[in-house]
């Protein structure tokens, strides 16, 4: 058996070996509890720490991300899309795109993955108390919003009305569709679903159109509200003026930037947008902060 099983916590071993705790690049091992297919090319994965004590000691805040890895293939960065109130496991969601995610597509229950994190900043859920929450997502951007939605629903008395606008290219591309149905049954929650024109099915009951126009037409009350908008850059670009028109101030509009990262700990040098290292000072920014950044994301 390899040395890692010992899980030493000393900072430095006498022979010069870099200990596990000291090695910021070494992940925790996680057991795959569940894999769910969310769409034609998206799956969600539920993970539990292989080491029970490590699992108990772990905590994160919604909005933070992790670096997940499949040994032999490499690491990928995903938002931790489960609520931070869920103590027995964490979840992430991925679209089959590159080397790592194509290999992840074939994982099954009982497999072992690596996890480093949590990294980055988080949604200011405390500051959002007493506010109406507007969540706007496009495509694969539902997972990083989902964690905040569940968190708010679990502390329901702390938050006002919740509006969720979620769009995808086609009906089949809407991820967490079952949870959208469940959220819609909750009190003071409104769910607006939309698909791009041509993406609807004959029995589609939701809206047909793009997220910005659907948001504009939805008649959402913007008083005492904050908005979390995550999606492809083009969706964000056209949704922001809509929110401004509704009366939301720049400091009340939040997004999560998803720049390419390798280390997650402010060293590898690629996720910066101008002066800001997204992995450390982000990924969560207000529109007010983003307006200060150069067009570099």
């Amino acid at each position: 058996m390899c040395a890692c099983e010992a899980r030493d916590n000393t900072d430095s071993l006498a022979d010069g070996t870099i200990s596990r705790r000291e090695n910021i690049y070494q992940p925790s091992l996680m057991e795959v509890l569940q894999v769910r297919r969310q769409s034609a090319d998206v799956k969600s994965v539920r993970l539990r720490f292989s080491d029970e004590a490590e699992g108990k000691a772990f905590s994160f805040k919604v909005g933070q991300f992790g670096i997940f890895s499949l040994f032999g293939y490499g690491e990928s960065v995903f938002n931790i899309c489960s609520s931070s109130n869920w103590k027995d496991y964490i979840e992430f969601c991925f679209r089959k795109t590159g080397r790592v995610t194509n290999a992840l597509w074939n994982i099954e229950e009982g497999d072992t993955l690596g996890f480093r994190g949590p990294y980055g900043n988080y949604y200011p859920m405390d500051a959002w108390r007493g506010k109406n929450l507007i969540f706007i997502g496009g495509g694969i951007a539902m997972p990083p919003i989902r964690c905040a939605i569940w968190y708010a629903l679990e502390q329901r008395q702390d938050y006002g009305d919740i509006t969720i606008v979620y769009g995808a290219r086609t009906v089949g591309d809407l991820v967490y569709a079952d949870e959208l149905d469940e959220w819609a049954t909750r009190e003071r929650v409104r769910v607006v679903r939309c698909v791009d024109p041509g993406g609807e099915t004959p029995d589609w009951k939701g809206e047909i159109g793009f997220v910005p126009t659907v948001t504009e037409k939805a008649g959402i009350a913007a008083s005492n509200a904050v908005a979390l908008v995550i999606g492809p850059p083009i969706m964000i670009k056209y949704t922001l003026p809509v929110l401004a028109k509704m009366g939301l101030a720049d400091q009340d509009i939040y997004t999560s930037l998803e720049n390419r990262m390798k280390c997650g700990v402010g060293k590898c040098g690629r996720c910066n947008s101008g002066p800001v290292y997204v992995c450390k000072e982000g990924p969560v920014f207000t529109l007010e902060q983003i307006r200060l950044l150069p067009e570099d994301f």
Binding site: C2, C4, G16
Partner: peptide, 22 residues
């Protein structure tokens, strides 16, 4: 090398790199 990994079925074992004592 940041660490070594060994894959045995569904089990993974990680090993720290060689000591840097020189």
């Amino acid at each position: 090398s940041l660490y070594e990994y060994r894959i045995e079925g569904k089990k993974i074992a990680l090993k720290n790199p060689e000591p840097l004592a020189d």
